[in-house]
Simulated scan of single mutants.
Amino acid sequence: MKICFVVSTIDAETAGTTILMMKKAHERGHKTYIMGVGDFNFHYDSPISIYCKEIPKTFKAKNKEDFLLKIQDEKLKKKKLCTSELDVLFLRNNPTEEPTDRHWAEHSGIAFGRMVQQSGVLVLNDAFALSHAFIDKLYFEELPQIIKPKSIITRYKADLLDFYEQNGNKMVLKPLEGSGGQNVYLIDENERNLNQIIETISEKGYVIAQEFLPEVKEGDVRVILMNGQILEENGSQAIIRRISTREDEFRSNLSLGAKAEKARLTPEMQRIVDITAPKLIRDGLFFVGLDIVKDKLIEINVLSPGGLDYIQGTSLPDFTETIIQSIEKKVEYKKFYKNSISNRELATMK
């Protein structure tokens, strides 16, 4: 198959989950491409084209870091390719991580992805589902309350202060749009800068206040789902516990230096997956990350979920073989059934 991975920019890409999947697709003999979110090209009388780098068949890399270095080498030039030649476009850019001078990039990948999808190319995750779930913390709030902590989303300070008092003078504050644990605050009765924090976050948009879960001090668990089920390879499941390495840090984001270790599936986690999965499957969200604390889902990652690169530091497999095999099946189904199965259905079909 011909598969293209969309990232924010090739030069700024890191050796994470996307590169691992690319490397595996290439190793399995597929024509593999990478492009930046700014590399789409629309012309009124022809299909959308892209400027991308094609990974040469002779490409050999010792590891993901070496693979990335060779991709970023200036000797590997971009070429123009018509998207009608692709089998799969995998949207892996994270709009929430775009800097302020790249506002144009936030919606571009998904918007062009919708057009490519309508032309008949398989797009993962489903581009229309990503449009709906673009503010993933709002999408999160569509899930049943039984699996979520109490929360409020507002730009009004008085409402946030009321929520604070109703929850025993303790809450977590964060921007509605954002990722990687940036600008996330644990607020308790010792916090003297509450008004300033609220003003700082609300100046940039909506604020979400969430009930504080004491168990978060033991870390949270990232559960990676594929096709609405826990990603599994050779009997192992893609579940890792993320634990902060600092006693004064309640956030356990890997990007902030937390360590990852293998975790086991609990009945509480399985229940959250069972309740969440039907919506993900219906919406066409192929590859998703769930962040869980004990029996509560605290966040859902649909735009560009990661964590596979940190899994490599545990005794777990890298899971990329299973992911690429699943995409291969979808491409095969699409050829058999042509346009009788929608992109949304194919995206989460086993």
Rank of each mutant, 00 (worst) to 15 (best):
K174G: 08
M21P: 00
R28K: 15
I48T: 09
G257N: 08
N94K: 04
K350N: 13
T266F: 02
L122N: 01
F163T: 02
Q118T: 07
I298P: 04
M35S: 05
D87I: 11
E218I: 00
E332F: 14
G180F: 07
V123N: 02
S8F: 08
I323K: 10
V221H: 02
T96M: 14
E247H: 14
Q210A: 09
G228M: 08
A12Q: 11
D39G: 05
R222A: 06
V88L: 04
N63W: 01
K79C: 09
R264F: 09
L89H: 09
F42C: 08
L256M: 12
D318W: 12
M22K: 07
S202G: 03
I146Y: 07
N183Y: 11
H43S: 05
I48S: 03
E177K: 14
I201M: 08
F40H: 01
V123S: 05
E218H: 08
K157N: 09
M269P: 05
K350F: 10
N234D: 14
L20D: 05
L173V: 03
D318Q: 13
E141D: 09
N125W: 11
F42A: 09
G168M: 13
K170D: 07
S131E: 10
S119L: 06
H26S: 05
K279T: 09
H132S: 11
K77T: 15
V116S: 06
D73W: 01
G178D: 08
K334D: 02
E328T: 14
K75Y: 14
G313R: 13
F286M: 10
S315N: 13
K174W: 12
K62Y: 04
C82A: 14
M171A: 11
F59A: 06
S151N: 02
A347F: 12
I292Y: 03
P95D: 07
K150I: 12
K79M: 13
N94C: 11
R28L: 15
S340Q: 15
T154L: 11
S46F: 07
P99G: 04
E261P: 05
L256P: 03
K137F: 15
I50F: 02
V221Q: 04
N339L: 06
P99V: 05
L280K: 03
L173R: 00
E268D: 15
D309L: 12
L124P: 02
